[in-house]
Amino acid sequence: MTSIYFLSLRQLQSRWRIAALIGVAVVPLVPAIVSFAASDKPTALELDDTLINGLLASAILPIIALALATPVFGNELEDKTLANLTLTPLRRWQIVAPKLAAAVSVAIPLIALSALVSVFLAFEGAELSGGQRAAVATAIGLAIGALVYCAMFSWLGLVSRRALGVGLLYAFVWEGLFGTFVDGLKYLSVKQYALSIINALDPARFDGSDQTVIGVTTAAIGSSVVLVVFTWLTVRRLRRMDVP
């Protein structure tokens, strides 16, 4: 199992992918640095809206998860090398678990560091207090979101040749576009689970917002269900599919 983990980790670390991902993770530093320079300092609520919700949770999180989780099985399907794995004397879940772990162990540090540094700096730059707590809360919430997204997108990479397209549809049309029209979709949105957890960990910053967020218990249950169901689906799929 550990060898599959390290193998998957190495496959994910193509030089271009890592460079691109680091580039993506660095982007939230731009608004953080701008808040140092601005004469008209943003409030905590504005930062929550533009940086935490608008950029980190809505864009950086799904992009990092998609880029790391869909190729976990997708590349091996495309290169027709999946048989090498399924022929090892391992149970199917013992293949899925390390592969998922590999994706997560790159995704979580990236997104957590990006959130930690950018939120903390933005609060400092805007001369707001509570930056440390907001930064840690955001990092934890997004890390959980990354875990759930990775489980979902690894499954997608295994079932669809167009996993990236479907994943983009889910993240940006379902959660993004339709989420703005239909309020109830927030119960079926990984992004909203992550935001809810962030707000539960740092409620002070959120005072006076008119934004509605689902309850943290619901978010926790939702995250766990999505995580377990998609991991199970991946194992099941791997057990039943015709390996090319």
């Binding site: 691109a20 993506v24 864009a59 990236l164 397209g165």
Partner: peptide, 28 residues
Amino acid sequence: RRAYAAAFLIGVLIISAAVIGGVTETVD
């Protein structure tokens, strides 16, 4: 690969919108 092109386009689109949307509200 197709996926790289799609990821690049969406990345640039979503990130530039989010960053510029946030930044233009704070700068002069």
